[in-house]
C-alpha cells in the first residue's frame, strides 16, 4: 500500500507549488478585505477563495485526487450534510435577509 502511495502521490515540487498558491490566496484574501471598493462583493469573493483553499488542501495534501472515490465520497457526504445544516439553520434564523 505504501509503495503504491509513493508512486501515485504528487511529488515534492507539486506540494511546494500548492503551498505557494495557498499562501498567495491567503494574502489575496487579506488584501481584498482592506480594499474599500470591493466591499459590496466581499462576501462572494472571500467564500470562493476559501473554497479554493479548502479544495486544494483536500485534493493534494490529503491525496483525495489520487486516492479514489470511496474516501472522497465519505468526506463529501460529511461536508455536504454539514453545509446543508449550516445553511438551513442560518436561513431559519433569518441570516439571508427577509
Amino acid at each position: 500500500m505504501s509503495r503504491h502511495s509513493a508512486e501515485s502521490h504528487p511529488s515534492t515540487r507539486l506540494y511546494v507549488a500548492i503551498a505557494v498558491i495557498l499562501a498567495a490566496l491567503t494574502a489575496l484574501e487579506v488584501m481584498v478585505f482592506y480594499i474599500e471598493a470591493l466591499a459590496p462583493v466581499l462576501i462572494p469573493i472571500l467564500l470562493v477563495m476559501m473554497a479554493a483553499k479548502f479544495a486544494l488542501v483536500a485534493m493534494f495534501f490529503m491525496h483525495l485526487k489520487s486516492d479514489g472515490p470511496v474516501l472522497t465520497a465519505i468526506f463529501a457526504w460529511g461536508v455536504f450534510i454539514a453545509t446543508a445544516i449550516v445553511v438551513g439553520l442560518m436561513a431559519i434564523f433569518g441570516k439571508f435577509g427577509a
Binding site: 468526506f75 457526504w77 460529511g78 461536508v79 454539514a82 453545509t83 445544516i85
Partner: peptide, 9 residues
C-alpha cells in the same frame, strides 16, 4: 473526519 465536519459545522 466526515463526522468532525458535523461537529465543526
Amino acid at each position: 473526519i466526515g463526522s468532525e465536519c458535523m461537529l465543526f459545522g
